[in-house]
């Protein structure tokens, strides 16, 4: 071992390679943590930082823009985070930018997201304090997801019961298996379509009528729109009212007249009483009618004797003949 020849060049390369790798590694880490290059700092205040730590990444619209410098508690509701951001990103970050804390992926490190706003605002400056907004949090997401899962489970149970009831329904399956049903439905739809067309026509006609009425055309239109008819109707109503008054007067007069007749009849006065109540008068009338009947029969016998007499026989035959001719012509008609 003591006789081995030392190649200092190889040793130098070996040393430089090792030290160079170390320097490069430290530089890259420092660059990732924004230790090199120009940066500026501004602050954001949150109610809860969800475990954010110094060194966590800061992203502007999803691009790595810097890192968290410090996390300090100002009071029981405000936690202030100082963000170290590359100076070249300064012109893109405005004071109305939305700053939130989120997780890098589902189980990754915490990151601060800066989302640009579309509304105009001045650029953020060194030392500015911006208000953080509540971002998506994995715990809250999981809570909501758990609630959603429970809801879905309840809905699935209901759907299961519904499907089971549907499967057990004989009537429904009979309807579904009825091969004539589609044709009937199709026919019904066609009829419905035709009915709809008819209804459209009717509605068009109705529309025309309504337009006519609105324009004062036709009887109904005149009734609705013509003010003179309304005036005449008012007059007619007045006249009808007058007639009613007159009818009332007449009625009272008739009542008085009837009351007078009734009084006369009851008191045995006047012609009506004689006709209705006097029995002697009735007997006389009955006798008179019996006499008239007797005289009528005697007259009929005389007429029969005249028909048999040669003096008047010809006259009665001509009368008969004319009567038949009249009746024959009437039959033709």
């Amino acid at each position: 071992m003591a006789n081995k020849k030392v190649d200092t060049t190889k040793l130098g390369v070996f040393m430089i390679a090792g030290v160079g790798f170390l320097v490069m590694l430290l530089y890259v880490i420092g660059k990732n943590q924004n230790l090199f290059g120009k940066t500026f700092a501004f602050r954001a205040q949150f109610e809860n930082v969800h475990g954010l730590m110094p060194g966590n990444n800061v992203r502007f619209a999803g691009i790595d823009a810097g890192s968290v410098k410090t996390v300090e508690v100002l009071d029981d509701t405000i936690i202030e985070v100082t963000l170290l951001v590359k100076t070249k990103m300064k012109k893109f970050i405005h004071r109305n930018a939305k700053i939130s804390i989120a997780t890098d992926g589902l189980i990754g490190n915490m990151v601060v997201n800066i989302e640009p706003s579309k509304l105009p605002a001045p650029e953020v400056e060194e030392g500015d304090v911006l208000q953080g907004v509540k971002g998506l949090n994995t715990d809250e997401m999981l809570k909501v997801l758990n609630q959603t899962n429970n809801d879905i489970a309840s809905i699935a149970t209901e759907i299961k019961h519904t499907v089971m009831r549907i499967n057990k329904s004989k009537a429904l399956w009979e309807v579904l298996e009825d091969e004539s049903l589609p044709a009937n439905v199709r026919q019904s739809l066609q009829r419905l379509k035709a009915a709809t067309v008819s209804i459209n026509h009717i509605l068009a006609d109705v529309s025309v009528v309504v337009n006519d009425v609105r324009d004062g055309k036709g009887t109904i239109g005149k009734l609705v729109r013509d003010s003179s008819i309304a005036l005449a109707a008012t007059e007619a109503v007045d006249k009808i009212k007058n007639i009613g008054v007159a009818a009332d007067s007449l009625s009272s007069r008739i009542n008085g007249f009837v009351a007078g007749i009734t009084s006369d009849v009851n008191e045995g006065k006047g012609t009506i009483h004689t006709l209705l109540k006097d029995e002697t008068m009735a007997q006389q009338l009955r006798n008179g009618v019996g006499d008239i009947e007797h005289d009528a029969r005697a007259l009929k016998e005389v007429m029969e004797a005249l028909k048999q007499s040669f003096l008047f026989r010809g006259y009665f035959r001509r009368q008969e003949k004319q009567k038949r001719e009249r009746s024959g012509k009437g039959g033709k008609y």
Binding site: M1, K4, V6, D7, T8, K10, L11, F14, M15
Partner: peptide, 13 residues
């Protein structure tokens, strides 16, 4: 020391 560095370091690579 340099010889040892060569033997211990470089030759162990």
């Amino acid at each position: 020391f340099i010889r040892q560095c060569y033997v211990i370091g470089y030759q162990s690579l």
